[in-house]
Simulated assay, not measured.
Amino acid sequence: MSQLKLEEQLCFPLYALSRKVITYYTPLLEKLDLTYPQYLVMLVLWQEPSLSVKELGERLYLDSGTLSPLLKRLEAKKFISRKRNESDERIVIISLLPGGEALKSEAASIPLAMQCSLDLSNEDISSLRSHLYQIIHKIIPPNK
């Protein structure tokens, strides 16, 4: 039953690579007082400084139960604010605060540092990212 061999699984190399890549991020992010999931939130907010929890979750493929603790911690650090929408109190708006905006320039060196750590060319990274997004878009329908 070769289909049950570890080396035949798609999930294992993705899992192992994900864990290893995140360990490379950890020391870089500690300097910013961010965890890897918090960094992902900040990446979205540096592009779009104000959006709803639902929109943020859609961008990161995370549910509100996973996002809420992350957002509370970022709010406690004064990187973001969380406010209920005045016209619909069910909607919580996340906004980037000056403290969070200030991290952007400090984080600017992280992508190149990661590329160097992984010893990958621009072409390798572009190709890998493209393939991974193709898979993501096949298995996760838009707006889900």
Rank of each mutant, 00 (worst) to 15 (best):
S2N: 14
L6I: 14
E7H: 09
E7W: 10
E8K: 07
Q9H: 10
F12Y: 14
P13V: 13
Y15T: 06
A16Y: 14
V21K: 09
Y25H: 03
P27Y: 03
L29V: 08
L29D: 00
E30M: 13
K31Y: 12
L32F: 07
P37Y: 09
M42V: 03
V44Y: 04
V44M: 06
V44S: 06
W46Q: 06
W46K: 03
Q47Y: 10
Q47W: 10
E48A: 11
S52A: 09
V53E: 06
V53K: 07
E55I: 00
G57S: 05
R59I: 06
L60V: 00
Y61N: 03
Y61T: 01
Y61C: 10
L62N: 01
L62I: 02
D63S: 04
L67H: 02
L67S: 00
S68P: 00
L70M: 09
L71R: 01
L71G: 03
K72T: 05
R73H: 10
L74Y: 00
L74M: 10
L74S: 00
E75S: 14
E75V: 04
K78Q: 15
F79T: 05
I80P: 02
R82Y: 07
S87E: 11
D88R: 05
I91Q: 01
V92H: 03
L97A: 12
L97N: 08
P98Q: 07
G100Y: 00
A102S: 15
L103E: 03
K104G: 06
K104Q: 15
K104T: 12
A107V: 04
S109C: 15
I110E: 14
L112P: 05
M114I: 15
M114G: 11
M114N: 03
Q115N: 12
L118V: 07
L118R: 02
L118C: 14
N122T: 07
E123L: 14
I125Y: 01
S127T: 10
L128V: 12
R129T: 11
S130I: 02
I136W: 11
I136Q: 10
I139R: 13
I139G: 10
P141S: 11
P142M: 02
N143Y: 15
